[in-house]
Structures are given as structure tokens and as C-alpha cells.
Write a protein that binds this DNA or RNA. Structure first.
Length: 597
RNA sequence: GGUUCCGUAGCUCAGUUGGAUAGAGCAACAGCCUUCUAAGCUGUGGGUCGCGCGUUCGAAUCGCGCCGGGAUCACCA
């Protein structure tokens, strides 16, 4: 049971007794005592002054007296202005430490415990170009969110909706047809997604030339964009695809397979996976029947040209098209259909889309339209809306080649890990295989932490010229701290002292030791908060704090060399608990930690 | 223009259900390896929390108005 909750409930009971007035628990502010003051938890008493009709100090003292009488775990208290600082007994903390070391999975619930199933859709790439840094943020967030939700006791279904059809794919296909000379991943040695991406860029280059030529002939930019032969051809190809043209379909299939093979490599390197992959080519017609039903019910409107619209003006949005005048679907239509299908098929409680904030409007509209159609589960559609990754020059643009390629970046990170490691003389004497496994772990740890430590909803900056750090508030710092702890535990096992009973009464915990235990105590609520806010960043910040605190402790205190057995036992348990928690926390971010560096 | 998100140290970011003297990391400078892993630890310097007004015992945090930046408002996805 959470001590803060216990304190709160005691105060709810106590205030009427002391002052004869009810208090709602909202008014009770308890937080960890700041380091410059003595105590573990602090109650802010200002909100109670009206009912106590006394000064802050006196009120705080009265409440302090009351709580001390009620709760044995309170050692003592002190009052500074309107702040009541409560100090808990050492026994309380030592008992808690015992609990952690006894528990298999501290701070983590078992998936299914909550009785809820969550579906997380993430990644959802287009198949006309390789993945870049923006996709990395998406993939890492999606994977981490799924892990965090599981840790909160939910079952999780991870899905990916691959956007494998549309004009953008046709652009790559057309360019390949025109200028590819039959190139394949095998013949060029290129990763499939890279090969296809090159033709997308090639298309855009030629297309721009055509536009420029038409503009020179006096057309406006819009007209030129519309009339350029290349775009006309691409559109024709899309019509052919939709008509089921055999040849186009064959090419489409072949090129998509190349891309999938390429994506798989990137996904595997990143360590992300999916329970189910949807293909838009199979889902894009879903939703049309829902729209027609809505039309029949009169909640949607049809215009004279036959197009169907949802009127969202009452909710502050605009008119939203759902079926074109020729009766075909748009993006929104498909999303209506897939959402409907998913709630039916998987009996999910929540559906969370991990999609960039540029689509905020789309998801607002999606929920509203579903609501209009009478689906109450639309309230359970969530959008984890994350910010863009920007370069110093601004936004990344695939077509202009100003993107940070996912594979390149990963390779760079692993290479830097290798160089750094060799410079520092780490891993000398390890087999090549073992060493490169660790380089990979550290390189990816650095990258993942770098991305995930930032609040998802914020735009973040990446400067390719400055390499991602390996020191300080970084993934490798967490990994290093873990790798530092593990040998201690291994030695303790050799010495046969690894599971000695903690007495807790004969020794005095140092400030650092208490600080560490208190931090550990926070872990379960951090996991909870990260789950409630869809924020891996909270986990990242927490494990950094924990690792930093541990390194200070490590510097100041001997562990195995401590002669007092009681003291040593506590420090050992503390160390292995921190190690365990770092590993669990990093795992929630999709970051592996090594046994040794 | 409407909607919406953001603005904290030179740089990258924490801190926002209102609480005590606003914090980290990087970069700079000065120290600490014959002692359990120095990817570590210690110290120094660095702030008009974009600006103003308001609410409050108390505002980086809430409200209003400006300034600056991003996203979005397609018969694209």
C-alpha cells in the first residue's frame, strides 16, 4: 500500500476530528520532501488554515501530532512555515527494501491483470521510401507504450497499418519502369526500401523539371503541377491498379515485397514488432458501408454531385468529406472502417494511434464522425500525438533528401559505440561476437534513450553534426550503471553472502541510502503515470535519476568491502534492487542492458 | 484568418492536479583512478522561466492580452 495514500486517508479522517470540517482529498497535497529539508514526505497545510482558524505553524504541528499518534511509521515531524515534513522510521524503509528484493517483478503488473485489452497502432509507413528519423520516433514510442501498458496490467495488441497503395507508390513504380532498367535489390545490392525510395526521389526530380518547363510556357504553378505528363501518367497507373490491371499489379506486388524485406531489417534492428499487420490495399474499402448507413440514418449529408459529408461545424471543425462524388473512399473512410472492425474483432477497450501531431485534426474528426454514427466506443479512441523531429535547418523532407535515414543513423550509433568502447579499453578479452552484441546494445540504447527521454508531444531537435552523447543523461549511462552493479552481485553469490537477512535495527541508513530507497519506492507510481499519460519520457527521466543517485552512492560507500555485515547486506540488497529496477525501466523503453561493459 | 501545440541556462531537455532558494545533461574551467567498472564522481561559472496585466497567502505552472515559432483547416494519406 502506497504510503502517500495512507497519509491522505488519515488526514481525511483526522481533519474533521481536529477542526470539525470535511475535506475533500483533492485539497490534500503531499509530495516528497525537498532535499534541503529534513523529512520524507511533506504536507502543505495552507489549504486547511480556513478551517483550523490558526496560523500555519500551529496547524501543521497539530496535524503532525495527530498523524504521529495514528501512524507508527512516522518517526517524527518538523514544521517549516506552512509545510509539515514527516519523517518515516528506518524500519519502514528497510521492510520495503525486503519487499523489493523478494518480488520477482518489482513495479510491474502482469498483462491481463487489469482485465483490459489495448490496441496500439504504430509505425504505419508508406511503402514508397525508406524509414527515417521521424519513423524511428514513432516506432520507439509505439513499442515503448505497448510495454508500459503491459506493465500496467493490460493486454496489448500491437498493429501496423501499412500504406501500400496510392499515388505515391505509383510514382516510384513509374520511375522504376522508365529509368530502372530492371534493377532489383539483388542486382544493385541495395536494400529494397532504399532502391524503391531512389525512384521516388527520381520521379520528383523529373516532375519538378516538367513543372518548371510548363511554367516557362506561361502556366501557373497549380496548372503546371496538374498538367505535367509525369503526374498524369502516375494517375493513370493508379487507375490501372484500381481496375486490377495485371501488369501494374504485378509490378506493385514486386516492389512492395522489396520494401517489406527492407523494413523488416530495420524493424528487427530496432527491436520492434507487431502482432498483426494490416495492408491498406486490403482495408481501403472498409468503412463505405458505415458511411452509407449514416447517410440512411440522416446523420451524414449528400451533396448534389453525390459526395458524402459529415458536418462537424458544431464541434468547431469543418465539413469533412467521407465519400468522393464518384463514390470512392478517402483516408477517413478507411479509418472509420478499420476502427469499427478492430473493436468488433478484438473486443478491445482502447485503441491508441501513435501518429504525429500533424494529424491531430484527422483524429479529432475521426472520433466525432464515429460518434455521429452512433458508436459510443469512439470515446475509447486515443491519439498519442507526438511532435516532429526537426533538424537545425527545419523539417525533414523525403523528396528533398533532407532526411536522416534510419538505417544509417543506427549504423552510426553502433559504430560510435564500438569506437568509444575500444578507446576506453572496455571489453578487452571478450570474443568478437560478444563484443559486437554489446556495441549494438549500447549504440541502440543511446539512440532510443535520446528519443524517448523527450516528452512525446514536444517537437524535438536533432543535430546530425553533433553526435548523440554517450555520457551524462544518456542510454549508455543507464547501461553502464547496470553493468557496474551486476559484478557486485555475482561476487556476492560467490562469497555466499547474497541473500543474508536484513535486520535493519542495528544499523543507521546514510542519507544516500535512504534517498535511493525512496526513489525505488516511487517506481511503481512512475510506471502508472507513464501508462496514464502515454509517456515513456517519465520512465526515462526516472531511471536516469535512479542511476545518478546510485552512482553517487557507489562512490561514497563500500559494498562488498563493508565490514559490518548488516550494513553490507543492506547495501547489497539496495544495489541489486537498483540494478533490477534499471533493467525493468530500460526494458519499458525497449532498451537492453548489458551484464558487463 | 479559424483551430491547436509550443517558448525555461550558450545548446539539448526536466520541472506544469499552483507550494519552500527553478533543476539535469552537454559544452567551458578546476579536481578525483595502487581500493567493488572513471561511459563514473566532486566543484566553479551560467536564468527577466518570451513580454505585460490579473487571480491567489503563494504563479514557470491558472486566466486574459500581446510577441515569436510549429502544425492543421484537400474529392492527398
Amino acid at each position: 500500500m502506497d504510503i502517500v495514500k495512507i497519509l491522505k486517508s488519515q488526514i481525511v479522517i483526522g481533519l474533521p476530528i481536529l477542526y470539525g470540517s470535511e475535506t475533500d482529498s483533492q485539497q490534500i497535497q503531499i509530495y516528497k520532501t525537498r532535499k534541503e529539508f529534513v523529512g520524507d514526505y511533506t504536507l502543505v497545510v495552507f489549504p486547511f488554515l480556513k478551517s483550523s482558524k490558526k496560523g500555519p505553524e500551529q496547524t501543521a504541528a497539530q496535524i503532525g501530532d495527530y498523524l504521529s499518534q495514528q501512524l507508527q511509521v512516522i518517526e517524527n515531524y518538523n514544521v517549516v512555515k506552512g509545510f509539515l515534513n514527516l519523517k518515516l522510521t528506518q524500519k519502514f524503509w528497510v521492510e520495503f527494501l525486503k519487499e523489493i528484493s523478494a518480488s520477482e517483478q518489482f513495479g510491474i503488473k502482469t498483462p491481463g491483470e487489469s482485465g483490459k485489452t489495448m490496441m496500439v497502432e504504430y509505425s504505419s509507413p508508406n511503402t514508397n521510401k525508406p524509414l527515417h528519423l521521424g519513423h524511428i520516433r514513432n516506432n520507439l514510442l509505439g513499442f515503448s507504450l505497448a510495454e508500459i501498458l503491459k506493465a500496467n496490467g493490460h493486454k496489448v495488441v500491437k498493429v501496423n497499418l501499412v500504406n501500400d497503395r496510392g499515388i505515391h507508390i505509383c510514382k516510384s513504380m513509374l520511375a522504376w519502369q522508365k529509368w530502372g532498367n530492371g534493377a532489383t535489390p539483388e542486382s544493385t545490392g541495395l536494400k529494397g526500401d532504399k532502391l524503391v525510395g531512389n525512384y521516388y526521389v527520381a520521379f520528383d526530380k523529373e516532375y519538378k523539371k516538367e513543372i518548371a518547363a510548363l511554367e516557362a510556357n506561361g502556366l501557373t504553378t497549380d496548372e503546371a503541377k496538374e498538367q505535367a505528363p509525369l503526374i498524369q501518367e502516375a494517375r493513370e497507373m493508379l487507375r490501372q491498379w484500381e481496375a486490377g490491371n495485371e501488369e501494374v499489379n504485378q509490378l506493385w506486388h514486386t516492389m512492395n515485397q522489396w520494401v517489406y524485406a527492407g523494413f523488416d531489417v530495420t524493424y528487427r534492428t530496432l527491436g520492434v514488432d507487431f502482432d498483426k499487420i494490416y495492408y491498406e490495399s486490403e482495408t481501403y474499402k472498409l468503412g463505405k458501408s458505415l458511411v452509407l448507413e449514416g447517410l440512411a440514418k440522416g446523420v451524414l449529408k449528400q451533396q448534389a454531385d453525390g459526395s458524402v459529408w459529415a458536418d462537424l461545424t458544431e464541434d468547431g471543425l469543418d465539413q469533412k468529406i467521407l465519400l468522393r462524388s464518384d463514390g470512392t473512399s478517402v483516408y477517413m473512410t478507411q479509418d472509420l472502417g478499420t476502427a469499427h472492425q478492430r473493436f468488433q474483432e478484438f473486443h478491445i477497450n482502447d485503441l491508441i494511434y501513435v501518429v504525429g501531431n500533424e494529424q491531430n485534426y484527422h483524429f479529432q474528426a475521426l472520433k466525432l464522425v464515429l460518434k455521429k454514427l452512433g458508436f459510443n466506443w469512439s470515446d475509447h479512441i486515443q491519439h498519442l500525438s507526438y511532435g516532429m523531429v526537426e533538424l537545425p535547418e527545419g523539417k525533414m523532407k523525403s523528396r528533398e533528401g533532407t532526411v536522416v535515414d534510419a538505417d544509417d543513423l543506427i549504423a552510426e550509433m553502433v559504430e560510435t559505440a564500438r569506437e568509444t568502447s575500444q578507446e576506453l579499453g572496455k571489453l578487452d578479452g571478450k570474443s568478437d561476437e560478444e563484443a559486437s552484441e554489446i556495441y549494438h546494445m549500447i549504440g541502440l540504447g543511446a539512440l532510443k534513450y535520446f528519443i524517448l527521454k523527450v516528452d512525446p508531444k514536444k517537437t524535438m531537435m536533432f543535430n546530425p553534426k553533433e553526435s548523440i552523447d554517450f555520457n551524462g543523461n544518456t542510454g549508455p549511462f543507464i547501461q553502464y550503471t547496470h553493468a557496474r552493479i551486476r559484478p557486485i552481485y555475482r561476487k556476492a553469490v560467490e562469497m555466499g553472502i547474497h541473500n543474508q537477512e536484513l535486520g535493519g535495527n542495528t544499523t543507521t541508513l546514510s542519507e544516500k541510502e535512504q534517498e535511493l530507497i525512496k526513489l525505488l519506492y516511487d517506481f511503481p507510481s512512475v510506471v502508472e503515470e507513464a501508462g496514464a499519460n502515454y509517456s515513456p519520457a517519465l520512465i526515462a527521466n526516472y531511471i536516469f535519476e535512479l542511476a545518478k543517485e546510485y552512482n553517487q552512492f557507489y562512490h561514497e560507500h563500500p559494498i562488498l568491502k563493508e565490514t559490518d555485515e548488516q550494513q553490507r547486506a543492506i547495501r547489497l540488497t539496495l544495489s541489486s534492487s537498483v540494478g533490477k529496477t534499471l533493467k525493468t525501466g530500460a526494458g519499458l523503453l525497449g532498451i537492453d542492458v548489458p551484464e558487463r561493459i
